[in-house]
Design a protein around this nucleic acid. Structure first.
Ligand SMILES: NC(=O)c1ccc[n+]([C@@H]2O[C@H](COP(=O)([O-])OP(=O)(O)OC[C@H]3O[C@@H](n4cnc5c(N)ncnc54)[C@H](O)[C@@H]3O)[C@@H](O)[C@H]2O)c1
Ligand SMILES: NC(=O)c1ccc[n+]([C@@H]2O[C@H](COP(=O)([O-])OP(=O)(O)OC[C@H]3O[C@@H](n4cnc5c(N)ncnc54)[C@H](O)[C@@H]3O)[C@@H](O)[C@H]2O)c1
Lengths: 224, 224
DNA sequence: CCAATTTTGTTCTCACGTTCACAAACTCCT
DNA sequence: AGGAGTTTGTGAACGTGAGAACAAAATTGG
């Protein structure tokens, strides 16, 4: 129903609305919100139109009302239990990330295969053996899993997650995951992002081969 | 010249080719590589055609040769110096990330505003005060900066980076950055990814309002 | 050397996403 | 009440990307 590109922007609007509300702003125009969210105002209005008609012509949008409507549409008015698998460098950072909790996601378990980690407390949650996955998923009705293991283990972890009933996976490991129909996978890959930046950087430098050129002769624009 | 969507996939092909090479495979068809990269083979061939004609009809692609060509096109045959600003939970994880080094990115400095962190060694690199940014950028010809500070500090850090000559920024803070023309910004936002998953999860559950429904009545497909 | 087979590179078509432009709908002021 | 001024919601034009289909080019076998 709602285009995928729009779905990906709704959380950005939500964040911008929260920032406006924190500043005591109660009403905003599509222009205001678009600027806060870093998008074109026409695109913003079209995106919002997929949710319904929550604005008032000549006036704009009620910040709190729109915020609630978007939150409801995304599904963050309810609490989502989440498990994190792989409590290494990245897993620790994720477990300590406060942005989880504040946006409706609750870390119900931290799992790892390394016996040395089991029993340690990270961010107030005890690390459990990976084999506890089944019980945790069943007990807490977990639908979302986060993979922060090395790449070689990622597919295996994903398979086990799917077998236990998890239907949404956020994957930080640099590996292509194969999952059955009906399971959503999103990947976050730092090194891909850096490589994309490097590509554009190389172009800016005029395709010079040696060293990182400092002079950025902006051939091709592309500010985000 | 090369479509943005293609640029974003080239690093994935590169990773897949490396995996094939590690398995001793010296030649592969577009079908093989596409499958390893998780894309359609027609799309793969079209993507590669933007780089040139590096395959042989009736045979396929030489793994090492193609790998070099893609690496050169992206720009990862050279070394890219990178600075990381904000050495908190996430900054620590990034500093310890081995995938940086192995893909041509070299962390030349870790910067933070917190005096308590200055002087500490993280992943073999000493944390320096943020004010050292100018000297570091000048000394190492740094073009790429990573922001891992809290959101409220992100725009300020970005401004200072741009003023020092950095032209590519990878931003982990949940904030919209405004930068001049010619500067590229890419953002990685964990909570946005989770919210997108939550949206689809809610749809799978039939839009039920209470709790996280376990029964995933796959109404709308969407496996990645 | 030539035909059969394989696999690339490319063309064509369709779907999706973005942006412009404007009528509809609301407020405010006189 | 009515007109002027705003701002939304959306139809239409445009651009980009995905995928099917096929001709061109290489190998292999006779
Ligand atoms: N550190 C970063 O900043 C960073 C950035 C981007 C991507 N990544 C990726 O994220 C992943 C984790 O990175 P990291 O630096 O935390 O690595 P890490 O080695 O520090 O941690 C990996 C953890 O996964 C555990 N593990 C291994 N196999 C497992 C299994 N089968 N089941 C459960 N747990 C298992 C290990 O015991 C370890 O604790 C890697 O794939 C890495 O490429 C990391
Ligand atoms: N921890 C995670 O897993 C995670 C995940 C996604 C996004 N993020 C985002 O990444 C950012 C960092 O997260 P974190 O958990 O590491 O936070 P943190 O609070 O642990 O670390 C932030 C660091 O930035 C430093 N800092 C603050 N202002 C600065 C400035 N002006 N200049 C230089 N350094 C400054 C602080 O001293 C601190 O060391 C946040 O914006 C967070 O929302 C974190």
């Amino acid at each position: 129903m709602i285009p995928e590109a729009t779905v990906a922007r709704l959380p950005v609007y939500l964040r911008a609305l929260t920032a406006l509300a924190d500043n005591g702003i109660r009403t905003c125009s599509s222009e205001d919100l678009a600027s806060a969210a870093g998008v074109n105002s026409a695109k913003l209005r079209k995106d919002l139109s997929y949710l319904g008609s929550y604005g008032t012509r000549g006036v704009g949008y009620d910040v709190d009302y729109l915020r609630y409507q978007i939150a409801r549409e995304i599904g963050v008015t309810q609490d989502w239990p989440v498990v994190i698998v792989g409590i290494g460098n990245l897993g620790h950072a994720l477990a300590n990330y406060s942005g989880f909790r504040s946006r409706g996601f609750r870390v119900v378990a931290l799992l790892d295969a390394d016996p040395a980690l089991i029993g340690q407390t990270v961010a107030g949650v005890e690390v459990q053996p990976f084999d506890d996955l089944e019980e945790i998923v069943r007990t807490h009705d977990v639908a979302i899993g986060v993979i922060a293991t090395p790449a070689f283990a990622a597919q295996d972890v994903a398979d086990r997650m799917v077998a236990m009933g998890i239907t949404s996976i956020l994957n930080f490991a640099p590996a292509v995951l194969t999952v059955p129909e009906g399971v959503d996978v999103r990947k976050v890959d730092l090194s891909i992002e850096l490589q994309i930046l490097a590509y554009h950087e190389q172009r800016k430098a005029g395709g010079a081969t040696q060293g990182a050129a400092a002079a950025a002769a902006a051939t091709d624009g592309g500010a985000a």
